[in-house]
């Protein structure tokens, strides 16, 4: 008898439409992400990656079907499930007037940490992400790469079991990208499930084990990267991506 591995995310017959019907929508979408894996979600611009990410994190609510995170129903009203995951949105999601330490204090408290835990995790994260020297300076004066690291630190302050990352390395230099990817590997080694989107497909090949490609609100392929490359007879994820989604411009 086959044993079903524990799931980090389970999406069943999910349907979603924006109220004004101007953006991508999903119908009867099914997706399962195994706990502890490094999962990549890819697709051209406007494919629905960010929308799907927002649905999984409860920023948006589904119209039909269900999304479960670690077995619990996801959604804005379910605050218990929100303790289990972290989210690093594509846009900088912090208060630019505050310093990294002040941002971590605020978001740590909102994530449910107590004062001692916040102090401990703030020191750890600022050290790991190279922000110790600027811990008390306002974030608005930081470079793009430093802001990306602050964005990431806030997302992981409460040691989430599942971490959603929406293009976490966009606009950063090679050094920062490598530091971030290295830290994500460390998190995964410690048991955190990573669910990641990016347009950097070479980076994705380094980071992800499992991937899904979506386009126009539909999953067009999913599986282990090596298996997919073998199945479609391609040498790289980029070739596979172009083959499946075409060369036409997307908006």
């Amino acid at each position: 008898m086959e044993v079903t591995p524990p799931l980090a995310v389970s999406i069943e017959h999910m349907g979603f439409r924006y109220p004004d019907n101007t953006d991508v929508s999903f119908a009867d979408l099914n997706l399962q992400i195994i706990k502890g894996t490094r999962f990549g979600l890819f697709g051209p611009n406007g494919a629905g990656k960010t929308t799907l990410m927002n649905l999984m994190t409860g920023v948006l609510s589904v119209n039909e079907g269900s999304i479960k995170l670690l077995g619990q129903e996801a959604g804005t009203q379910n605050k218990e499930v929100n303790k289990l995951f972290g989210f690093v949105p594509q846009d900088f999601s912090f208060y630019k007037e505050l310093s990294p330490a002040e941002n971590l204090e605020f978001f740590g408290a909102w994530a449910g940490l107590n004062k001692a835990e916040i102090i401990k995790r703030t020191d750890e994260l600022l050290h790991i992400l190279g922000l110790e020297d600027v811990r008390n300076k306002p974030v608005e004066k930081f470079s793009g790469g430093m802001k990306r690291r602050v964005n990431l630190a806030i997302g992981v302050i409460h040691n989430p079991q599942v971490l959603f990352l929406d293009e976490p390395t966009v606009g950063v230099d090679v050094q920062t990208r490598q530091a971030i990817i290295s830290y994500l590997h460390t998190l995964n080694d410690n048991g955190t499930t990573l669910i990641y989107t990016s347009h950097q497909l070479s980076e994705a090949e380094d980071l992800c084990e499992q991937i899904a490609m979506i386009d126009e609100g539909k999953i067009i392929t999913q599986g282990h990267i090596d298996d997919l490359l073998k199945e479609h007879k391609h040498d790289s994820l980029e070739e596979l991506f172009i083959n499946l989604t075409g060369k036409a411009y997307r908006n």
């Binding site: 994190t57 409860g58 605050k79 929100n82 995951f85 900088f92 999601s93 408290a109 909102w110």
Partner: peptide
């Protein structure tokens, strides 16, 4: 309208706080 609100919505604290 800033990104911080999206993160606030994903945290286990009600925005009423």
């Amino acid at each position: 309208v800033s990104g911080s609100f999206i993160r606030l919505k994903t945290l286990p604290t009600n925005y009423l706080v």
